[in-house]
């Protein structure tokens, strides 16, 4: 955990300290822009579908989140609605 924390902090400091030339390569810029898209999508998929236990209500919760995001709801509303949906379905079913 400390390794990851210090690593992430070092990544920020690197950008402030290293010569700009080194980090302004077009390929590197594209990688840093695209990598989070693939990683976050993978995290959504794995965290939603990765465990069989309770998967139905979880999928419903994430689906509600997607609808709210499409409607430009604020972050808070989105995540609370996702949790509330899953919790409500578990209580009802």
């Amino acid at each position: 955990m400390l390794v990851a924390s210090l690593g992430c902090a070092a990544l920020k400091l690197a950008g402030w300290s290293l010569p700009q030339r080194l980090l302004e390569g077009e390929r590197l810029q594209r990688a840093a822009a695209l990598l989070p898209v693939a990683l976050l999508a993978a995290l959504v998929a794995v965290q939603t579908l990765g465990e069989v236990d309770g998967v139905g209500p979880r999928v419903a919760g994430v689906a509600v989140a997607a609808v709210l995001l499409a409607a430009r709801a604020p972050f808070l509303v989105v995540i609370l609605a996702a949790a509330a949906t899953a919790a409500a379905l578990r209580t009802l079913l």
């Binding site: 690593g7 990544l11 920020k12 400091l13 950008g15 290293l18 980090l23 302004e24 840093a32 990598l35």
Partner: peptide, 10 residues
């Protein structure tokens, strides 16, 4: 995931 912060920092 933290690597994008490097580019922000630049």
């Amino acid at each position: 995931l933290g690597s994008r912060n490097t580019l922000y920092a630049v």
